[in-house]
């Protein structure tokens, strides 16, 4: 175990000295690893966090790519049945939908930030575009914030349109348009896309959007994201800030946020439905002023707080999600 952890977080000299003095060094290593936040400079912490996130995303992308569409199939199924006047059965799709919504109510949209294959694809395309822009020195113009804010309402229109199509029974006739079908066929290395030309074209357009605007699909168009963002997410594990402790005029969190969010004030039940729980803002705050709603600091108390980007907490949420998916047979 300890051997595996070493390359991820190379120990500093003082940690090495501690090991030498302590013959019972293994638990010590684990402890130091978990205390990593206090031991390493901020930049290194950010790099490690971003690597951990990428590794989690890659694993979910490779092994559980269909959770998003399975859950959304649950939504489509429910409204199709209601439209037909038929009973709603407890199918695997409905089970995945219900469990994923319950998970989101507790932990926020961690699924979107760490486990959704489409979201991860968007992150990688955006990272690629940024890398190319850096190499060529040609930076594309960013979308103005007002436009982005207005566009984030489009996903509710997409959701409503799909629900209406399902309810009226027209959805079943619309084959070959769903970009997710094209994506999942390609993911399964099934290249018989002849009947899905429209879907492939839409998929390509979406991928171009994803490359130029961070989380383009998730923020603006994802119908499942629209459902998630309407959930009454509990404040305990979602991010808040204590605005009065901020540096004057600082908006580092909003600037680093893929969804351009202003975090809600500590101690309120307010939650940002568009937050993917990526945790980037937490590491970028110059005052470490961002934390989960459960922390003491949120209640104006002592120093102990759950910041929400601790490695153990990220891994715990990913493990719970993985466990639920395995249990549901995704």
């Amino acid at each position: 175990m300890a051997q595996n952890l070493k390359p991820v977080a190379p120990p500093k000299n003082n940690v090495l000295e501690k090991w030498k003095r302590n013959p019972n060094w293994e638990p010590e290593v684990v402890k130091d690893y978990l205390n990593f936040e206090e031991q390493y400079p901020k930049k290194q912490q950010r790099q490690l966090r971003s690597w951990v996130r990428t590794v989690i995303q890659v694993l979910f992308f490779l092994f559980l790519p269909s959770a998003y569409s399975a859950a959304f199939n649950g939504v489509k199924y429910i409204f199709t049945q209601v439209g037909k006047g038929a009973a709603i059965q407890w199918t695997p799709f409905v089970a995945i939908l219900v469990v994923l919504l319950a998970y989101t109510i507790v932990f926020g949209r961690f699924f979107c930030g760490y486990a959704c294959a489409f979201g991860s694809l968007g992150d990688w395309l955006f990272a690629l575009q940024k890398y190319i822009a850096k190499k060529t020195g040609k930076k594309p113009k960013a979308l103005p914030r007002d436009t982005a804010k207005a566009l984030s309402g489009v996903k509710y229109v997409v959701l409503t349109a799909i629900i209406v199509l399902c309810f009226t029974g027209l959805y079943a006739k619309l084959t070959g348009w769903n970009p997710w079908d094209a994506f999942s066929m390609l993911h399964a290395r099934n290249f018989a896309l002849g009947k899905h030309i429209a879907a492939v074209v839409i998929l390509v357009v979406l991928m171009v959007g994803m490359a130029f605007e961070e989380r383009f699909f998730c923020k603006f168009l994802c119908p499942m994201g629209a459902v998630f963002s309407l959930m009454p997410t509990l404040p305990f594990f979602s991010l808040h800030r204590t605005r009065k402790d901020c540096l004057t005029g600082c908006s580092a969190c909003t600037k680093t946020c893929p969804a351009d969010l202003d975090l809600p004030e500590s101690g309120t039940l307010s939650v940002r439905g568009d937050c993917f729980q990526c945790g980037k803002c937490v590491g970028n705050c110059p005052k470490t002023n961002i934390h989960c709603g459960v922390s003491d600091r949120a209640a104006g108390g002592g120093k102990r707080s759950l910041r929400g980007n601790e490695l153990w907490f990220v891994l715990l949420r990913a493990a719970i999600l993985l466990g639920l998916f395995i249990w549901l047979g995704v």
């Binding site: 309407l230 959930m231 009454p232 997410t233 404040p235 004030e265 309120t268 039940l269 307010s270 939650v271």
Partner: peptide, 11 residues
């Protein structure tokens, strides 16, 4: 402060 949460929960 809690309006949006209560609204979502009720919905």
């Amino acid at each position: 402060k809690h309006k949006s949460f209560v609204l979502r929960l009720v919905s």
